[in-house]
Design a protein around this nucleic acid. Structure first.
Lengths: 348, 348
DNA sequence: TCTGCTGCCGAAAAGCTTTTCGGAACCGTA
DNA sequence: TACGGTTCCGAAAAGCTTTTCGGCAGCAGA
């Protein structure tokens, strides 16, 4: 009536989604031809293809993924099943996966199992019934976790927490190398009397980092000062352990801490004891949790586990497996990265 | 050959998904009857319904949501579009949404726009083309953000960061009340000389909290000690500002901090100045970011924004809107919650 | 001019569920 | 026995895309 044009150029205003039929009608061809033209199949004359593409463009057509998935068996979706309650690991992994998938081609269903096996099963079933093309399972610690089993009809990659079944594919940070890198950095900057405070020895991460630290110390011809102090992953423990250490071994010149939280505690105690960091004592942590590392005084040197890279790799593996490529199995360890800040090297 | 049974009781081993046709065949009815029986429609004899349910159970049948969505127009999926890079807000909101949706009924596509409008548009289009039933948009600060616009064919709820268009529905923490609660807690525990250190005044959260603090101070008949110290959201600023404050106003007995990070810095400086917390000075923060609040000495009293509740509410609103209920518009403010720890009340 | 081939296009089926509507069986009543 | 009404069940269509295959037209060669 009062319309300024007969047909809205921008397509239906969201009322009824544009279908391939609409495109075909506008282009004056059959839906079969329209489909082939848009999908780059080769049984279409160039002129016809152009007509169809123009029509699709004009209607802002986007194919219905449900119909496409119904037929193709592929849905273009991936499930991310996590138990990481605070999102410290899963967010970078999600970002890496999005990068690898190429934003928009694939979308990610994120489900939080909250560490509950029942809920995990529930989500797993829901994801499978949605016909996700693949699964990435993210745990909150690097200890092996129960496998989802073999009778899952889509590729599964375990990220951060490896599966306990060696026939699954798992990607996890190389904490042994991380420990080694930490010591090499300290030794390289002139430290010789190095102590080690860690967290809960029930964590594989604590043990692996410790192993790397021991190995690197040995290779440098150094002895660890004092025992490895294991307890829990908290600043409080870092403070208490540092107090113990500084009392028993006043001559240490570096402390490798099992996590950034512990390192924060150590920094506090060093201050209480009147030891300057990094001049008297170097302190470093693991995880490179920015809210902790960039806010301390001085800022904290740490080892970053490259989680975004891990997520990207996991996504690539899922993709490759989908395309029938053999992506192998077992646990693959991804190299960490040293991030140097003021707690180990004095600013000029 | 060597099979111990003719037919696997547990259904196809993930090879070909079980379809309704399989169920109908096993139950000896038509697919139409099977569908009606499973969906609780009332044109089915009880005995027949039982037969069908038993068959479905035995085959572990779950309806293909693609086919269902194709027909119904609803997909049972919701898009969560975030710009929250560290996941501090989006993870609790996701968890709340999962709670509200009832795990499994609805699944959530999580997309991270990383603060990039282009990427956000990209993800938005992808989500719409997947026919999500609704959208929740999560921002990383409580300042109004650009609306996605009106021509989105599904309900949209903005969470944490409200939309700048008042005809959209937004849910955001009530930071004014948060500030008020903070002061009331301090006053209620006997503090009278209260100072305020905040973060970047460009943030609506900083201004709203400050407004609530001023109002509550006035109602209590108190004057704020010193100016509100605005600068940035960091521990460093908390340390520096506290030093300034303690020098200029040595007689303060409480500091309200604009964030937990700032409060952590204030705790450090108080210690440096030899002031006991909470005996000499009470300190509190906002956000209740656990890694910060439960690791400090003493542990930090904070105001929790109830993000999980916010996520739950957002999901409920999306649901209600889907069912045609008018969920209103404009920005709705959700009440925060006081979490008392040792930095304001001495342990007995 | 006729045959055969190539190049394009379109009809139709497949993929799975839900819903509508027609029809069959059964019961009770006239 | 015949008929009306109720109760269930099943055939079929709709929802949208992709793929297969048949067919038509046009062209070249005989």
């Amino acid at each position: 009536m009062a319309g300024t044009e007969q047909v809205s150029a921008s397509g239906e205003r969201g009322q009824r989604p544009v279908t391939l039929t609409d495109v075909a009608r506008l282009a004056g061809v059959s839906i079969a031809t329209a489909s082939k033209a848009l999908n780059g199949r080769d049984q279409v004359a160039p002129a016809t293809r152009q007509k169809v593409i123009a029509a699709a463009d004009r209607l802002a057509f986007s194919p219905n993924p449900l119909a496409r998935g119904l037929l193709a068996g592929r849905t273009g979706t991936v499930g991310l099943l996590t138990s990481d309650l605070v999102g410290r690991f899963v967010i970078p992994i999600l970002m890496g996966a999005e990068d690898a998938f190429g934003a928009g081609k694939i979308n990610v269903f994120l489900c939080d199992a909250r560490g509950d096996a029942i809920r995990e099963q529930h989500h797993l079933r829901a994801l499978l019934s949605r016909r996700v093309d693949g699964l990435i399972v993210v745990g909150e610690r690097t200890d092996p976790r129960p496998s989802l089993g073999k009778d899952i009809p889509v590729p599964v990659v375990y990220a951060y927490a490896p599966s306990d079944d060696p026939s699954d594919l798992s990607l996890t940070p190389d904490n042994t190398t991380a420990g080694r890198i930490a010591v090499e950095h300290l030794v390289g900057s002139g430290r010789t009397r190095i102590a080690h405070i860690s967290g809960d020895p029930g964590y594989a991460a604590a043990r692996a980092r410790a192993a790397g630290i021991e190995a690197a110390l040995g290779e440098a011809g150094l002895e660890r000062i004092g025992d490895v102090l294991f307890s829990e992953w908290s600043e409080r423990w870092g403070r208490d352990a540092a107090a113990l250490l500084l009392t028993q071994h006043p001559d240490i010149d570096a402390v490798v801490c099992g996590s950034d939280q512990i390192a924060r505690g150590v920094l506090d105690t060093a201050r209480d004891f009147g030891r300057a960091v990094p001049e008297d004592i170097a302190v470093m942590g693991f995880d490179n949790w920015e809210v902790l590392t960039t806010n301390s005084r001085p800022e904290l040197t740490s080892i970053d586990a490259n989680l975004q890279e891990l997520g990207r790799t996991a996504a690539q593996r899922v993709f490759a497996a989908l395309d029938g490529v053999d992506v192998g199995s077992g646990t693959q360890y991804l190299p960490p990265r040293l991030v140097i800040r003021g707690s180990t090297i004095a600013r000029r």
